[in-house]
Design a protein around this nucleic acid. Structure first.
Lengths: 225, 225
DNA sequence: CATCCGACTCTCGTATACGAGTATACGGAA
DNA sequence: TTCCGTATACTCGTATACGAGAGTCGGATG
């Protein structure tokens, strides 16, 4: 998102109240403070944030497009449910989108970009905070896809990564997951460094499938939040 | 999205003013009545439709998520530009999404569904109206993907088909396109009837690539609307 | 005792109103 | 003549207000 912000001189976008509320709500949902299925009453949120319902409405609509809430006219907005089926759907989509992006991008990755990716992996290793971990994870993946030449595809991938991130947060408890994920990341990166696009895609595919299974299994029974 | 709508008895969703305005604006944009880059002033639209700005705002936000308009805070909404690059991006995404959906769905397609698909093709042949043609086209594709078991994927495909439809409308002039498209449709359907998923996917891939090239070539020079 | 009907409440959709930021046009100065 | 500053007009974001529809609880009736 916000690729324009990369261009240094321009943009200077005005940030609206709705944007800030949207960000706050997103973090609350992803982090689990707002549990699955919770009703998001416009009045209540307006009172809590100290603004009118209008910016709240805008924020909720934005979150709906991100798949974090569902809105039904006359019934209101609710935190989208988390279930194993949803995870499998999101990951199946991520698999086709991201493998394609990596395949396209791999031949155009420069040494500099790959070095930056390696640095990101190190930062991920050192990062204890879950929110930042998710962001760094997304940044690493995005970097490898960045040269795919399809902005719209990158945007789609970002959106689905964010949707999946909500589930990943629920996995903090599993210490193995982090380690396995990182070793797969490194395998993917080294394939890219060799210029082995097919190999990188294979690793990525396995990486996503394992993530899907791990998350689906974790959500299946224990966590009801 | 719209998981509830699948359950037959219920839904009966209340249709809001914003929904109707959204539909009207979408048709106007797709059809070309609102040219690329046109400013969509909120009060002007409010006056034209006879409602306040609030439903118009909601409709514009919805159209933004569909990629038909771009919104900049404090600057307003504009009809999204049409260009060849955008076409290639959309079609590249459609290719990975739709081939995956078809691959998953093909083994589960019943004779009844295939017959309905065949009937749709006949209706397409007989349909002169461009708007209906696009809808029937989408319906045919969706039907073949319907058994993929991934609602989210189907929704994504719908969205991108709608985004592409806007460009397809610009191709009314080319009488060949319709015929070629239909013969490819029939080849795809017959592969599905044989249970040849790989064959169907191959045809679909070629179908989409040809569509992409035809549209990109058409938009390249002549049409500036 | 069960069921059906009606009034009440709660929430959302929509309308109207106000303030702030930006673009534009006009006038003055270099 | 050209450039810049100021003032004006325009548009959007946000606040407040009102009406309608759905859900709910209680009472009355069969």
């Amino acid at each position: 998102m916000d690729r324009m912000a990369a261009l240094p001189g321009m943009s200077a976008k005005p940030v609206t109240i709705a944007d800030r509320i949207c960000e706050t709500l997103r973090e609350a949902i992803v982090e689990g403070a707002l549990p699955s299925g919770a009703a998001l009453r416009q009045d209540e949120l307006a009172a809590r944030f100290g603004f009118s319902r209008m910016p709240i409405r805008d924020a909720l609509r934005q979150l709906e497009t991100e798949g974090l809430v569902t809105i039904h006219p006359t019934k209101g907005a609710f935190v989208a449910p988390m279930d194993a089926a949803e995870i499998r759907e999101i990951y199946a989509i991520r698999e086709v989108l991201e493998t394609e992006a990596l395949r396209l991008s791999c031949p155009w990755l420069t040494g500099e970009t790959l070095q930056e990716a390696a640095r990101l992996l190190d930062r991920i290793d050192a990062e204890p905070n879950a929110a930042r971990w998710g962001a760094l994870n997304a940044a690493f993946h995005s970097l490898l896809y960045s040269q795919c030449g399809n902005r719209r595809l990158l945007h789609l991938i970002d959106a689905h990564h964010a949707a999946a991130d909500r589930y990943v947060r629920a996995l903090l408890s599993d210490p193995d997951y982090h380690g396995r994920s990182q070793s797969e990341h490194r395998a993917m990166l080294s394939a890219c460094e060799r210029g082995d696009a097919d190999g990188a895609v294979t690793v990525l595919r396995a990486h996503l499938r394992e993530g899907s299974q791990t998350l689906a299994a974790a959500v299946q029974g224990p966590i009801e939040r």
